[in-house]
Protein backbone atom coordinates (compact mmCIF):
# COMPACT_ATOMS: atom_id res chain seq x y z
CA UNK A 1 0.00 0.00 0.00
CA UNK A 2 1.61 3.23 -1.19
CA UNK A 3 0.72 6.01 1.26
CA UNK A 4 3.40 8.57 0.43
CA UNK A 5 3.54 8.51 -3.31
CA UNK A 6 4.03 11.27 -5.86
CA UNK A 7 0.46 11.47 -7.13
CA UNK A 8 1.66 12.49 -10.58
CA UNK A 9 2.81 8.89 -10.90
CA UNK A 10 -0.90 8.14 -11.38
CA UNK A 11 -1.15 10.13 -14.63
CA UNK A 12 -2.73 7.74 -17.15
CA UNK A 13 -3.93 5.33 -14.45
CA UNK A 14 -7.58 4.71 -13.57
CA UNK A 15 -9.16 3.39 -10.40
CA UNK A 16 -10.65 0.02 -11.15
CA UNK A 17 -11.53 -1.22 -7.68
CA UNK A 18 -12.48 0.12 -4.26
CA UNK A 19 -11.81 -2.43 -1.55
CA UNK A 20 -11.23 -2.71 2.17
CA UNK A 21 -7.59 -3.05 3.18
CA UNK A 22 -6.70 -3.76 6.82
CA UNK A 23 -5.83 -0.04 7.15
CA UNK A 24 -9.05 1.19 5.56
CA UNK A 25 -10.64 1.73 2.15
CA UNK A 26 -8.18 1.44 -0.70
CA UNK A 27 -8.00 1.76 -4.46
CA UNK A 28 -6.47 -0.51 -7.10
CA UNK A 29 -5.27 1.40 -10.15
CA UNK A 30 -4.74 0.11 -13.68
CA UNK A 31 -2.73 1.82 -16.42
CA UNK A 32 -4.93 2.94 -19.28
CA UNK A 33 -2.72 5.60 -20.88
CA UNK A 34 -4.25 7.10 -24.02
CA UNK A 35 -6.78 4.31 -24.39
CA UNK A 36 -10.39 5.50 -24.52
CA UNK A 37 -13.37 3.72 -22.99
CA UNK A 38 -14.81 2.50 -26.29
CA UNK A 39 -16.18 -0.89 -25.23
CA UNK A 40 -19.87 -1.08 -24.23
CA UNK A 41 -18.97 -1.51 -20.55
CA UNK A 42 -16.20 -0.32 -18.20
CA UNK A 43 -15.37 -3.91 -17.24
CA UNK A 44 -14.71 -4.81 -20.87
CA UNK A 45 -12.19 -1.99 -21.31
CA UNK A 46 -10.44 -2.93 -18.08
CA UNK A 47 -10.54 -6.64 -18.96
CA UNK A 48 -8.87 -5.85 -22.26
CA UNK A 49 -6.16 -3.82 -20.50
CA UNK A 50 -5.50 -6.68 -18.11
CA UNK A 51 -4.54 -8.86 -21.06
CA UNK A 52 -1.36 -6.80 -21.27
CA UNK A 53 1.31 -8.47 -19.09
CA UNK A 54 2.43 -5.09 -17.74
CA UNK A 55 -1.01 -4.45 -16.26
CA UNK A 56 -1.12 -7.90 -14.72
CA UNK A 57 2.08 -7.35 -12.80
CA UNK A 58 2.04 -3.63 -12.14
CA UNK A 59 -0.74 -1.80 -10.40
CA UNK A 60 -0.72 0.96 -7.85
CA UNK A 61 -2.56 0.32 -4.61
CA UNK A 62 -3.31 3.43 -2.59
CA UNK A 63 -5.45 4.53 0.33
CA UNK A 64 -8.63 6.27 -0.77
CA UNK A 65 -7.19 9.62 0.36
CA UNK A 66 -4.93 9.54 -2.72
CA UNK A 67 -8.12 9.82 -4.79
CA UNK A 68 -8.85 13.03 -2.94
CA UNK A 69 -5.39 14.40 -3.70
CA UNK A 70 -5.87 13.56 -7.37
CA UNK A 71 -9.30 15.22 -7.29
CA UNK A 72 -7.83 18.42 -5.88
CA UNK A 73 -4.91 18.58 -8.33
CA UNK A 74 -6.49 16.97 -11.42
CA UNK A 75 -10.27 17.42 -11.22
CA UNK A 76 -10.85 16.32 -14.82
CA UNK A 77 -13.86 17.25 -16.93
CA UNK A 78 -17.05 18.26 -15.16
CA UNK A 79 -19.75 15.67 -15.90
CA UNK A 80 -21.96 16.72 -18.83
CA UNK A 81 -24.82 14.34 -18.11
CA UNK A 82 -25.77 11.20 -16.25
CA UNK A 83 -27.69 8.30 -17.79
CA UNK A 84 -29.92 6.18 -15.57
CA UNK A 85 -32.13 3.41 -16.84
CA UNK A 86 -34.64 0.73 -16.05
CA UNK A 87 -32.31 -1.94 -17.56
CA UNK A 88 -32.87 -3.41 -21.03
CA UNK A 89 -34.12 -0.08 -22.23
CA UNK A 90 -31.56 1.22 -24.70
CA UNK A 91 -29.03 2.79 -22.33
CA UNK A 92 -26.12 0.88 -23.86
CA UNK A 93 -27.14 2.12 -27.29
CA UNK A 94 -27.15 5.70 -25.98
CA UNK A 95 -23.77 5.35 -24.29
CA UNK A 96 -22.23 3.71 -27.37
CA UNK A 97 -23.55 6.45 -29.62
CA UNK A 98 -21.99 9.08 -27.36
CA UNK A 99 -18.76 7.08 -27.08
CA UNK A 100 -18.43 6.99 -30.87
CA UNK A 101 -17.25 10.63 -30.79
CA UNK A 102 -13.69 11.17 -29.65
CA UNK A 103 -14.59 14.36 -27.75
CA UNK A 104 -16.80 12.34 -25.41
CA UNK A 105 -15.63 10.33 -22.43
CA UNK A 106 -18.32 7.77 -21.62
CA UNK A 107 -18.02 5.58 -18.55
CA UNK A 108 -20.53 2.77 -18.55
CA UNK A 109 -21.58 0.88 -15.40
CA UNK A 110 -18.16 1.28 -13.76
CA UNK A 111 -17.45 -1.18 -10.99
CA UNK A 112 -15.59 1.37 -8.78
CA UNK A 113 -18.60 3.72 -8.89
CA UNK A 114 -20.85 0.83 -7.90
CA UNK A 115 -18.51 -0.04 -5.02
CA UNK A 116 -18.54 3.58 -3.86
CA UNK A 117 -22.33 3.71 -3.80
CA UNK A 118 -22.45 0.42 -1.88
CA UNK A 119 -19.59 1.30 0.50
CA UNK A 120 -21.90 1.63 3.52
CA UNK A 121 -22.89 -2.01 3.08
CA UNK A 122 -19.22 -3.02 3.35
CA UNK A 123 -18.53 -0.92 6.44
CA UNK A 124 -21.05 0.63 8.80
CA UNK A 125 -18.48 3.36 9.51
CA UNK A 126 -18.97 4.83 6.04
CA UNK A 127 -21.27 7.86 6.34
CA UNK A 128 -23.36 9.50 3.65
CA UNK A 129 -20.85 12.37 3.61
CA UNK A 130 -18.05 9.86 2.98
CA UNK A 131 -19.94 8.37 0.05
CA UNK A 132 -20.67 11.80 -1.42
CA UNK A 133 -17.01 12.82 -1.18
CA UNK A 134 -15.73 9.48 -2.47
CA UNK A 135 -18.15 9.59 -5.37
CA UNK A 136 -16.84 13.04 -6.39
CA UNK A 137 -13.26 11.81 -6.16
CA UNK A 138 -13.97 8.58 -8.05
CA UNK A 139 -15.88 10.32 -10.83
CA UNK A 140 -13.11 12.90 -11.13
CA UNK A 141 -10.49 10.16 -11.54
CA UNK A 142 -12.53 8.70 -14.39
CA UNK A 143 -13.05 12.12 -15.98
CA UNK A 144 -9.45 12.62 -17.08
CA UNK A 145 -8.61 13.48 -20.68
CA UNK A 146 -6.75 10.61 -22.36
CA UNK A 147 -6.68 11.66 -26.01
CA UNK A 148 -6.38 15.41 -25.38
CA UNK A 149 -9.51 16.69 -27.12
CA UNK A 150 -12.24 15.39 -24.84
CA UNK A 151 -14.65 18.06 -23.61
CA UNK A 152 -17.77 16.12 -22.62
CA UNK A 153 -18.05 13.48 -19.93
CA UNK A 154 -21.03 11.16 -19.55
CA UNK A 155 -21.66 8.45 -17.00
CA UNK A 156 -24.05 5.62 -17.61
CA UNK A 157 -24.92 4.24 -14.20
CA UNK A 158 -26.02 0.69 -13.41
CA UNK A 159 -29.77 0.11 -13.23
CA UNK A 160 -30.12 0.12 -9.45
CA UNK A 161 -28.04 3.30 -9.03
CA UNK A 162 -31.10 5.45 -9.64
CA UNK A 163 -32.13 4.42 -6.12
CA UNK A 164 -29.14 6.48 -4.96
CA UNK A 165 -30.15 9.49 -7.03
CA UNK A 166 -30.70 11.74 -3.98
CA UNK A 167 -27.11 11.07 -2.87
CA UNK A 168 -25.75 11.42 -6.41
CA UNK A 169 -27.56 14.77 -6.70
CA UNK A 170 -25.90 15.92 -3.47
CA UNK A 171 -22.53 15.08 -4.97
CA UNK A 172 -23.39 16.61 -8.37
CA UNK A 173 -26.33 18.99 -7.93
CA UNK A 174 -25.86 20.71 -11.29
CA UNK A 175 -25.44 17.70 -13.53
CA UNK A 176 -28.54 16.93 -15.63
CA UNK A 177 -29.66 13.32 -15.82
CA UNK A 178 -31.95 11.22 -17.97
CA UNK A 179 -33.87 8.07 -17.12
CA UNK A 180 -34.51 5.57 -19.89
CA UNK A 181 -37.41 3.17 -19.54
CA UNK A 182 -39.36 0.79 -21.70
CA UNK A 183 -42.57 -1.18 -21.83
CA UNK A 184 -42.44 -3.52 -18.80
CA UNK A 185 -43.20 -6.70 -20.74
CA UNK A 186 -40.30 -6.06 -23.12
CA UNK A 187 -37.95 -5.48 -20.19
CA UNK A 188 -39.12 -8.54 -18.26
CA UNK A 189 -38.88 -10.83 -21.29
CA UNK A 190 -35.33 -9.61 -21.90
CA UNK A 191 -34.48 -10.00 -18.22
CA UNK A 192 -35.80 -13.57 -18.10
CA UNK A 193 -33.69 -14.45 -21.14
CA UNK A 194 -30.49 -13.16 -19.59
CA UNK A 195 -30.67 -12.35 -15.92
CA UNK A 196 -28.38 -9.67 -14.51
CA UNK A 197 -29.02 -7.72 -11.34
CA UNK A 198 -32.46 -9.23 -10.92
CA UNK A 199 -31.23 -12.36 -9.17
CA UNK A 200 -32.18 -12.32 -5.45
CA UNK A 201 -29.31 -11.23 -3.17
CA UNK A 202 -27.15 -9.84 -6.01
CA UNK A 203 -28.36 -6.44 -4.84
CA UNK A 204 -28.78 -5.50 -1.19
CA UNK A 205 -32.39 -6.12 -0.19
CA UNK A 206 -32.64 -2.89 1.79
CA UNK A 207 -32.28 -0.95 -1.46
CA UNK A 208 -35.75 -2.04 -2.45
CA UNK A 209 -37.42 -1.85 0.91
CA UNK A 210 -38.45 -5.46 0.50
CA UNK A 211 -38.71 -8.16 3.12
CA UNK A 212 -36.07 -10.86 2.49
CA UNK A 213 -38.55 -13.58 3.49
CA UNK A 214 -41.01 -12.40 0.88
CA UNK A 215 -38.30 -12.21 -1.76
CA UNK A 216 -37.32 -15.86 -1.23
CA UNK A 217 -40.90 -16.89 -1.93
CA UNK A 218 -41.18 -14.85 -5.13
CA UNK A 219 -40.99 -16.30 -8.62
CA UNK A 220 -38.18 -14.84 -10.78
CA UNK A 221 -40.63 -12.82 -12.85
CA UNK A 222 -42.19 -11.28 -9.77
CA UNK A 223 -38.86 -10.52 -8.09
CA UNK A 224 -37.54 -8.84 -11.24
CA UNK A 225 -40.75 -6.83 -11.51
CA UNK A 226 -40.45 -5.68 -7.87
CA UNK A 227 -36.85 -4.54 -8.41
CA UNK A 228 -37.71 -2.79 -11.68
CA UNK A 229 -40.71 -1.11 -10.07
CA UNK A 230 -38.49 0.28 -7.31
CA UNK A 231 -36.07 1.57 -9.96
CA UNK A 232 -38.84 3.24 -11.97
CA UNK A 233 -40.40 4.68 -8.84
CA UNK A 234 -37.08 6.23 -7.79
CA UNK A 235 -36.74 7.98 -11.16
CA UNK A 236 -40.33 9.16 -11.04
CA UNK A 237 -39.93 10.56 -7.54
CA UNK A 238 -36.84 12.59 -8.51
CA UNK A 239 -37.88 13.65 -12.00
CA UNK A 240 -38.25 17.30 -10.99
CA UNK A 241 -34.73 17.32 -9.62
CA UNK A 242 -32.76 17.85 -12.83
CA UNK A 243 -34.12 14.86 -14.74
CA UNK A 244 -35.57 14.06 -18.16
CA UNK A 245 -37.62 10.92 -18.84
CA UNK A 246 -36.98 9.13 -22.13
CA UNK A 247 -38.94 6.17 -23.44
CA UNK A 248 -37.06 3.52 -25.44
CA UNK A 249 -39.42 4.26 -28.33
CA UNK A 250 -37.79 7.69 -28.68
CA UNK A 251 -34.43 6.10 -29.54
CA UNK A 252 -32.20 6.59 -31.38
CA UNK A 253 -33.36 10.04 -32.55
CA UNK A 254 -33.63 11.37 -28.98
CA UNK A 255 -29.85 11.05 -28.61
CA UNK A 256 -29.16 13.94 -30.97
CA UNK A 257 -32.37 15.79 -30.18
CA UNK A 258 -34.04 15.74 -26.74
CA UNK A 259 -31.14 14.20 -24.81
CA UNK A 260 -28.44 16.39 -26.36
CA UNK A 261 -30.55 19.48 -25.90
CA UNK A 262 -31.15 18.58 -22.27
CA UNK A 263 -27.42 18.01 -21.71
CA UNK A 264 -26.68 21.31 -23.50
CA UNK A 265 -24.47 19.77 -26.16
CA UNK A 266 -24.55 20.29 -29.92
CA UNK A 267 -23.28 18.01 -32.66
CA UNK A 268 -22.28 18.69 -36.26
CA UNK A 269 -24.02 16.78 -39.04
CA UNK A 270 -20.92 14.60 -39.43
CA UNK A 271 -20.98 13.79 -35.71
CA UNK A 272 -24.67 12.92 -35.88
CA UNK A 273 -23.91 10.60 -38.78
CA UNK A 274 -21.13 8.95 -36.77
CA UNK A 275 -23.53 8.38 -33.90
CA UNK A 276 -26.22 7.10 -36.24
CA UNK A 277 -23.81 4.53 -37.65
CA UNK A 278 -23.64 2.99 -34.17
CA UNK A 279 -27.33 2.14 -34.43
CA UNK A 280 -26.46 -0.21 -37.25
CA UNK A 281 -24.63 -2.40 -34.75
CA UNK A 282 -26.26 -4.19 -31.82
CA UNK A 283 -25.14 -2.46 -28.63
CA UNK A 284 -24.03 -5.55 -26.77
CA UNK A 285 -23.41 -7.93 -29.70
CA UNK A 286 -21.44 -6.06 -32.37
CA UNK A 287 -22.24 -8.75 -34.97
CA UNK A 288 -25.94 -7.87 -34.90
CA UNK A 289 -27.91 -4.84 -36.06
CA UNK A 290 -29.85 -2.67 -33.62
CA UNK A 291 -33.56 -2.62 -34.25
CA UNK A 292 -36.62 -2.00 -32.17
CA UNK A 293 -37.67 -5.51 -31.15
CA UNK A 294 -40.66 -4.88 -28.92
CA UNK A 295 -43.18 -6.91 -30.92
CA UNK A 296 -40.91 -9.98 -30.94
CA UNK A 297 -40.36 -9.62 -27.21
CA UNK A 298 -44.08 -9.40 -26.53
CA UNK A 299 -44.68 -12.63 -28.46
CA UNK A 300 -42.30 -14.38 -26.06
CA UNK A 301 -43.99 -13.10 -22.91
CA UNK A 302 -45.26 -15.89 -20.68
CA UNK A 303 -48.38 -15.54 -18.56
CA UNK A 304 -46.16 -15.11 -15.46
CA UNK A 305 -44.33 -12.22 -17.14
CA UNK A 306 -47.59 -10.55 -18.12
CA UNK A 307 -49.03 -10.95 -14.63
CA UNK A 308 -45.86 -9.61 -12.92
CA UNK A 309 -45.77 -6.66 -15.30
CA UNK A 310 -49.45 -5.93 -14.78
CA UNK A 311 -49.26 -6.15 -10.99
CA UNK A 312 -45.96 -4.43 -10.26
CA UNK A 313 -44.83 -2.39 -13.22
CA UNK A 314 -47.59 -0.99 -15.39
CA UNK A 315 -48.95 1.39 -12.73
CA UNK A 316 -45.54 3.06 -12.39
CA UNK A 317 -44.88 2.83 -16.13
CA UNK A 318 -48.11 4.67 -16.84
CA UNK A 319 -47.09 7.39 -14.38
CA UNK A 320 -43.70 7.64 -16.09
CA UNK A 321 -45.42 8.01 -19.45
CA UNK A 322 -47.78 10.61 -18.10
CA UNK A 323 -44.90 12.52 -16.50
CA UNK A 324 -42.81 12.29 -19.68
CA UNK A 325 -45.57 13.61 -21.86
CA UNK A 326 -46.17 16.46 -19.44
CA UNK A 327 -42.58 17.19 -18.52
CA UNK A 328 -42.28 20.23 -20.73
CA UNK A 329 -45.43 21.85 -19.36
CA UNK A 330 -45.27 20.69 -15.75
CA UNK A 331 -44.85 23.48 -13.27
CA UNK A 332 -44.89 21.76 -9.93
CA UNK A 333 -44.04 18.37 -8.51
CA UNK A 334 -46.52 15.98 -7.06
CA UNK A 335 -46.07 13.43 -4.31
CA UNK A 336 -45.56 10.01 -5.83
CA UNK A 337 -46.94 7.11 -3.89
CA UNK A 338 -44.59 4.14 -3.89
CA UNK A 339 -46.27 0.79 -4.59
CA UNK A 340 -46.41 -1.41 -1.45
CA UNK A 341 -44.27 -4.55 -1.50
Amino acid sequence: MDRLMDINLLDGWVPLRLYWHEKGPAIDWCYLGARAFTEPFFDQTIGDCLRHPFNLLFRHQTPIEVLQQRYEMHPGIKPTGFIFHMSRSGSTLVSRMLASLSQNIVISEARPIDATLQAHFKSAEVSEQDRIAWLRWMVSALAQQRLGGENHFFIKFSGWHVLELPLIRKAFPDVPWIFLYRDPIDVLVSEMQERGQMIPHVLHQSLFGSDARLVVAMEPEEYSAVVLAAICHAALSSRDNGGLLINYRQLPDAVWSAISEFFSVRWTEVEKETMENVTKIHSKMPAGVFQQDSSRKREKATEQVREAARRWLYPTYEKLESARLGQTMRSSSEEIERPAI
Binding site: D2, M5, D6, L9, Y31, G33, R51, H52, P53, F54, F58, H60
Partner: peptide, 14 residues
Protein backbone atom coordinates in the same frame (compact mmCIF):
# COMPACT_ATOMS: atom_id res chain seq x y z
CA UNK B 1 6.08 1.58 -10.09
CA UNK B 2 8.07 4.65 -9.07
CA UNK B 3 9.79 4.96 -12.45
CA UNK B 4 7.62 6.04 -15.44
CA UNK B 5 10.52 5.55 -17.89
CA UNK B 6 10.91 1.90 -16.99
CA UNK B 7 7.12 1.52 -17.15
CA UNK B 8 7.11 2.92 -20.69
CA UNK B 9 9.77 0.44 -21.73
CA UNK B 10 7.88 -2.49 -20.24
CA UNK B 11 4.62 -1.45 -21.89
CA UNK B 12 6.21 -1.57 -25.33
CA UNK B 13 5.42 -5.26 -25.76
CA UNK B 14 2.18 -7.09 -25.16
Amino acid sequence: LANPDMQRTLRETD
